[in-house]
Design a protein around this nucleic acid. Structure first.
Length: 511
DNA sequence: TCTGGGGTCCTAGGACCC
DNA sequence: TCTGGGGTCCTAGGACCC
């Protein structure tokens, strides 16, 4: 709590969808839904136009399609969002060294620590300038909350949406919060909300009135006490930059439940490899391996095993995950599998060896086999039979499961819906749909007029996938476009996987 | 309507040690 | 010989957030 509103919370408006609209002029002003396109996909972000149809985050995609059948449905492109996010974070870092990112599109900034504001007027000026800078550099809008604490700054940005700024004057917190729903407070989700409602509390004022003892009795020590303080508008949490990750995990929901025990085991192996890849990319190792299984009925369980020391050896993680799998009953079908590592240490296996060698310890019995990236097994995965999306079924081809390295990569995998392409003659565009060895491209780019559509053969040598373009043309002296740097393998993987799980390539955008 | 993927934090019981 | 309490680690699950 401070007496001047110098904590800033920035939240980009409908970030993924807005970035896609900026990249694809024909989608501006139209409903756009970004999320998983497979039969079990959910909505990541809906544009404000799509929200008017009732579409919102975390909604099953099938439901979204019923509500907004004419919206454009796109798979997320994290390389684009990451690049825009880096531009935004760079602008925030000019305000203060104390920037705490919460996700790609959200962050706290301590304006006071940065010397960029020390009272209401200067905070307001900094916030408005930031919003203008973000629009100039990225072409997107963000909403800003300013207050004397993190909680209130965040509530402020929520109230400011879309494309606004709200400043909450210190001293007015309790009056402002009193009539609001308990669900406004961070940490109060559906379960806690129900719990409180059954106890007769629906507003923040109700919580303040109930008192700390009552809330602790109801919700437990930590949760009850912190909620009581928040209800009074008290929040001392500092803005902290650079928090080390505490776990790394990967998981996959399958388009169709897995029944074959052998198949389940090979998927666990692949997930273990992917998990270790990410672990190593972060220069970390971990001691506890966690297996997650979601069964056909959505019941979810985890099994974990703590090793004698941290590892980043894919073989070790695979074996541990495999052992854990032994203790899980998978009859009835498996909907999701996940492999994670916690208890992270800052050194890699290589460092351990160096240390061990220096100590002349005999511990170096486990060779860190450099597995490298295993070729993903048939990318068709569970698509093919029983896929709900009729277009996906039509495009999945006959039988599926052809040789992985065959030259005949299906068009929908070489050219995932929504991704950028370049044609030697027609220039920049994006994949509107693909399948049956054809690719349909809309030729337009950020800043251009809405473009026209043309269809090509997927093996057309003049057509190739390209990196996302900056949403705003680069200006001399302006911050550079991070996407232009060479991508790491893990980055390029994540986008193509998103495209793969999208499966159908049915990024339908109406002309 | 039929439920993603990546995380964080908390609770609770049992083992183990002092 | 029997009993007590506290601290830490491990495991499993749940709530929550974006």
């Amino acid at each position: 709590m401070r007496s001047a509103p110098t904590i800033l919370h920035l939240d980009m408006d409908a970030f993924f969808a807005a970035a896609e609209q900026a990249a694809k002029p024909s989608l501006r002003g139209k409903p756009v839904v970004v999320g998983g396109l497979g039969p079990r996909g959910v909505v990541s972000t809906a544009s404000y136009e799509a929200r008017r149809f009732g579409v919102h985050s975390a909604m099953p995609m099938a439901q979204a399609r019923r509500l907004a059948p004419n919206a454009a449905y796109l798979v997320p492109r994290f390389s684009l969002y990451r690049a825009v996010s880096e531009q935004v974070m760079e602008l925030l870092s000019r305000l203060s060294p104390l920037v705490e990112p919460l996700s790609l599109d959200e962050a706290f900034v301590d304006l006071e620590a940065g010397g960029s504001a020390d009272d209401t007027a200067s905070a307001l000026a900094a916030g408005e300038r930031l919003r203008a800078d973000i629009r100039a550099v990225t072409g997107l809008s963000g909403s800003v909350g300013l207050a004397g604490s993190k909680m209130l700054a965040k509530i402020g940005s929520e109230q400011a949406k879309p494309d606004g700024l709200v400043l909450i004057e210190p001293g007015t917190e309790r009056a402002l919060l009193g009539p609001m729903s308990v669900r406004t407070l961070p940490g109060v989700g559906p379960a806690t909300g129900d719990h409180l409602r059954r106890a007769g509390m629906t507003t923040v004022a109700d919580l303040a009135e109930a008192g700390e003892d009552e809330l602790v009795r109801l919700l437990g020590r930590a949760h009850g006490a912190s909620l009581y303080r928040m209800a009074l508008g008290l929040d001392d949490r500092a803005v902290v930059s650079e928090r080390d990750a505490k776990s790394v995990s990967v998981e996959d929901t399958f388009d169709v439940d897995l029944h074959d025990r052998v198949r389940v085991r090979t998927e666990v192996d692949r997930l273990a490899d992917r998990c270790v890849e990410r672990l190593r990319a972060a220069g970390r190792s971990g001691r506890t391996v966690v297996l997650k299984v979601r069964r056909y009925d959505f019941s979810t369980l985890t099994r974990s095993e703590t090793l004698r020391g941290p590892t980043d050896d894919p073989g070790v993680v695979r074996e541990a995950a495999g052992r854990l799998l032994e203790s899980v009953d998978t009859t009835g079908g498996v909907r999701l599998l996940g492999v994670g590592v916690t208890g992270l240490a800052d050194f890699t296996q290589e460092d351990l060896f160096a240390q061990a060698a220096a100590d002349e310890s005999a511990a170096a019995s486990h060779a860190s086999a450099d597995e490298g990236a295993r070729e993903p097994v048939s990318a068709e995965r569970a698509v093919g039979e029983g896929a709900a999306d009729s277009s996906a079924a039509a495009w999945a081809g006959s039988g599926g499961g052809g040789p992985v390295e065959a030259p005949e990569v299906p068009a929908e995998r070489r050219f995932p819906a929504g991704h950028d392409v370049r044609h030697r003659e027609f220039g920049a565009g994006w994949v509107q749909g693909s399948g049956l060895r054809r690719v349909t491209v809309r030729f337009e780019e950020p800043g251009s007029a809405p473009g026209r559509v043309r269809t090509f053969w997927a093996d057309d040598p003049d057509l190739e996938l390209s990196e996302p373009l900056p949403l705003v043309p680069a200006v001399a002296g302006q911050s550079s476009w991070p996407a232009s740097r060479p991508k790491s393998r893990s980055e390029s993987r994540s986008d193509s996987e998103a495209g793969r799980s999208g499966g159908s390539g049915s990024g339908r955008a109406r002309p």
